[in-house]
């Protein structure tokens, strides 16, 4: 499922970074139900667009997680004025705590989904480009840890195939070989990086990223959305209260939600335009 035609990934890495920092931050901290629904839908659509079937398969993990969070919250949180029933330990089961449990679960799933999109867009190459000059060590660690798990799995498959060929199939031995390989590989990588002068001052890294006009437009667009949403959040337009009664700010304007939708829909809109 590696479609090369998503235009959003062809933007300058700074644009992608700004976008994901903004959308992840807002998704984590804005608990207004309309904002949750907007962010959740945008993340879902974009994940399906990027990952196709894998995004739908991941619902297998997401739905139990959602149910677990929604069930566990009212067992431990007894705030709220609408008493539905009493738990066996004597404390009330409230409508507000169930609602908050569902909202928190949706928030959690939304953030996870945005992270799967981030993994697809901000590749290791872009990470090194973004953080390479600020902190070469950080960029190296990020890039290496991101490719660590897939690489380990691939090598494990190679080893177990080799073991099968010589007529052996022992799990512990495979892991032992894998660990030896990993240690040796780490030293080789480190030596190789050192030989090539990674992290030395005045050393440039080749990259194909050019800051074009459309990157400037994208940054302006994202910044406008960020300013609108932040201003709405500061003035209380995105305020929503779950305890002790459920209610929002009556004077809230739709501006915040329009800006939020505009921010969330950006990658999909860019891809559909081209």
């Amino acid at each position: 499922m590696n479609r090369q035609a998503h235009t959003f990934s062809e933007f300058h890495p700074v644009v992608s970074l700004l976008y994901f920092v903004a959308i992840l931050g807002f998704s984590m901290f804005i608990m207004h139900p309309i904002a949750l629904v907007i962010s959740f839908s945008c993340a879902g659509i974009y994940a399906i667009y990027l990952n196709g079937k894998a995004a739908i398969t991941s619902l297998k993990y997401m739905i139990p997680l959602l149910l677990l969070t929604a069930i566990l919250n009212p067992l431990f949180n007894h705030r709220g004025v609408t008493i539905l029933a009493y738990l066996p330990n004597g404390n009330p089961l409230t409508l507000e705590s169930i609602t908050y449990g569902i909202a928190a679960a949706i928030m959690l799933i939304t953030v996870i989904t945005w992270f799967t999109c981030l993994n697809k867009i901000i590749t290791g190459e872009k990470l090194v480009y973004l953080f390479g000059r600020v902190s070469p060590a950080l960029a190296l660690i990020l890039a290496m840890s991101l490719r660590f798990v897939p690489r380990f799995i691939a090598q494990m498959r190679v080893i177990s195939h080799a073991q099968k060929c010589i007529g052996q199939k022992r799990g512990i031995k495979t892991i032992s070989i894998l660990l030896t390989w990993a240690l040796e590989n780490a030293i080789e990588t480190a030596d190789s990086m050192k030989a090539r002068g990674y992290g030395l001052p005045n050393r440039t890294a080749f990259s194909v990223f050019r800051f074009r006009k459309r990157d400037g437009y994208a940054i302006a667009y994202i910044s406008t959305c960020i300013i609108c949403i932040t201003w709405s959040a500061v003035t209380g337009a995105l305020y929503f209260r779950y305890f002790p009664t459920i209610g929002g700010n009556e004077s809230s304007t739709p501006l915040a939600f329009i800006a939020y939708l505009a921010l969330g829909i950006l990658p999909i809109a860019v891809n559909f335009k081209t």
Binding site: T57, K60, Y61, P64, L65, L67, L68, I71, L72, L75, L87, P88, N89, G90
Partner: peptide, 27 residues
Amino acid sequence: KKPAILWTTIAIAVVIIVAFFFARSGT
């Protein structure tokens, strides 16, 4: 083993809920 995770989650949820229903105090 994808279904294993699902069943584990459900099993944990059931255990917690059952534990809650047996956590009666003697009042």
